[in-house]
């Protein structure tokens, strides 16, 4: 029974990683940049939930506010910080993203201080099925992230905007020739990625209610790892990478002897996968176009 509980819990935290990894991978695929400020959007989402809940005590409203606020933030960051650098060297964009990351963290610290805030999203008990005992937050996370993953896959495959995203990610110039407004597609990508980050922030606060301005830092790095494991730029890859990372984390943290090395083991897996398949599990080698 314990193994099933561990697996379910792993899939659930993997769902959270997948939400974040999707933001990294979509932005990388479409805007061709690594948005290292992505993790901090989670933190901003957390504070949006916190602020809304102080005012209304309503966690669902808090999530709604967080999603909208993060979408607007993501779009603004792209417009102000990244768009002027389109065509600049990737290194300049990367450093800008790191700058945005610090800017967001420091702004949060100035507004909310350094002391952790307690955000009890909801008091939830355990679900018991026979001998299985699983906390409700795990079930909620698992179900919500599964729904989002299916919805996003359908969106990309079946809608005009989704196909335009695939086209831009494959060949920006050819996409423009089709009449696709690349700037608009990049904006939509940042909006979707940031909304998913806000959702991930909600999941994380359900699991552990302590909120600081570095909430998104470590999960951000780990989700980036998940995106690379799955093949950066690939949407199903980010999902697989996220779930895999969640399961590895759940399994390793079960044993007292290995638990302290959980992070090390995760990054070791990254190294091994990259040695065997440098493009990640579902990554493709794309020929450079001039």
């Amino acid at each position: 029974m314990e193994i099933i509980e561990t697996l379910i819990s792993g899939l659930s935290s993997g769902g959270t990683y997948a939400m974040i990894a999707l933001g990294y991978t979509m932005v990388y695929g479409i805007a061709k940049m690594l948005n290292f400020a992505h993790g901090d959007i989670i933190m901003v989402g957390g504070y949006a939930i916190y602020t809304t809940m102080i005012a209304t005590k309503n966690p669902i409203l808090g999530l709604g506010v967080a999603i909208i606020f993060c979408m607007l933030l993501g779009i603004s960051v792209e417009k102000i910080a990244y768009k002027p650098l389109r065509g600049a060297s990737p290194l300049a964009v990367l450093i800008t993203a790191i700058g945005v990351s610090y800017l967001l963290q420091s702004t949060a610290q100035m507004i909310f201080g350094t002391a952790p805030k307690m955000v009890i999203v909801a008091e939830m008990g355990n679900m018991e099925i026979g001998a299985l005992k699983i906390p409700y937050y795990i079930i909620v996370t698992l179900v919500c992230s599964a729904i989002v993953m299916v919805a996003l896959t359908l969106f990309v495959k079946k809608t005009k905007t989704g196909r335009a995203m695939v086209a831009v990610s494959e060949d920006r110039g050819a996409a423009q020739l089709m009449g696709i407004n690349v700037n608009r597609i990049i904006m939509i990508t940042f909006a979707i990625g940031s909304a998913l980050a806000a959702l991930a922030g909600f999941f994380m606060l359900m699991k552990a209610p302590s909120l600081t301005n570095t909430l998104g830092a470590m999960p951000g790095i780990k989700a980036f790892t998940a995106a690379v494991i799955g093949g950066i730029g690939s949407i199903p890859g980010a999902m697989i990478g996220g779930l895999l990372l969640g399961i590895v984390e759940a399994v390793t943290s079960k044993s007292a002897a290995i638990a302290p090395y959980t992070d090390a083991i995760e990054f070791l897996i990254l190294i091994i996968i990259l040695l065997v398949r440098p493009t990640g599990i579902l990554g493709k080698v794309r020929r450079e176009k001039v």
């Binding site: 695939v166 086209a167 423009q176 020739l177 696709i180 690349v182």
Partner: peptide
């Protein structure tokens, strides 16, 4: 560029540059 298509001007680029990951039908849709 993306506005010229509406005006009635388009290009078959050098090296074809079709969308390799989409189906033939989806390429035509694009």
């Amino acid at each position: 560029c993306h506005k010229l298509v509406h005006a009635g001007l388009t290009q078959v680029p050098e090296g074809r540059r079709i969308f390799q990951e989409l189906t033939v039908y989806e390429n035509l849709l694009m």
